[in-house]
Simulated assay, not measured.
Amino acid sequence: MNEPKRPINVHKAYHAHVYFDASTVEFATQLCNEAGAKFGLRVGRVHQKLVGPHTRWSCQLVFSQQSFDDVVPWLDEHRNGLSILIHGVTGDDYKDHTDHAYWLGDEADLYLGNFL
């Protein structure tokens, strides 16, 4: 099995999608809120349902290229085993979730059919 692609700072804007389940929702919520407060990030809803291409429950964090070098290592250090998708925001949703997709932890399957 290939190692997931690690995040690189090459885009102007990013989304991080923190994945969780019923047993980790409380921790994931705390992680997202703490990241939002610490780095001034926009924190999306904590979705306890499948949303968009995500095949797991998730919460989105929005950040910029300027924040990347602080946010990504912090998330990696504090994720406590959760998988986090980090992708560039370029305006091409398909490429953002494939070519521009990077992972902290295990890679998760995505449903890309809506982008084709």
Rank of each mutant, 00 (worst) to 15 (best):
H54E: 07
L82R: 05
I84L: 04
G81Y: 11
G44F: 09
F68D: 01
K12Y: 12
Y94A: 05
G44H: 06
V25Y: 08
Y19Q: 04
N2F: 14
I86M: 05
I84W: 00
V89R: 01
Q66M: 09
C32R: 03
L110H: 01
D21W: 10
F39N: 06
V72Y: 05
R56G: 06
D69C: 14
H97D: 12
E3C: 15
G91V: 09
D69G: 08
V43L: 13
F63I: 01
F39A: 09
G81N: 11
W57K: 11
N114L: 10
W57L: 09
A108D: 10
E77V: 05
F39E: 06
G52F: 05
S58T: 07
G105L: 03
V46E: 07
G105C: 02
F115M: 03
N9H: 10
S83M: 02
L110A: 00
P4D: 09
L116I: 05
T24P: 03
D96S: 10
A101V: 06
H11P: 02
C59N: 11
V43P: 08
A22W: 14
G113D: 02
N33L: 15
W74M: 08
V43C: 11
K49I: 12
D76C: 11
I86R: 01
G91E: 01
A28S: 13
Y19D: 02
L116D: 07
S58D: 11
E107N: 02
H100D: 11
L116C: 03
N114I: 09
F115I: 02
H54F: 08
G40C: 11
L41K: 01
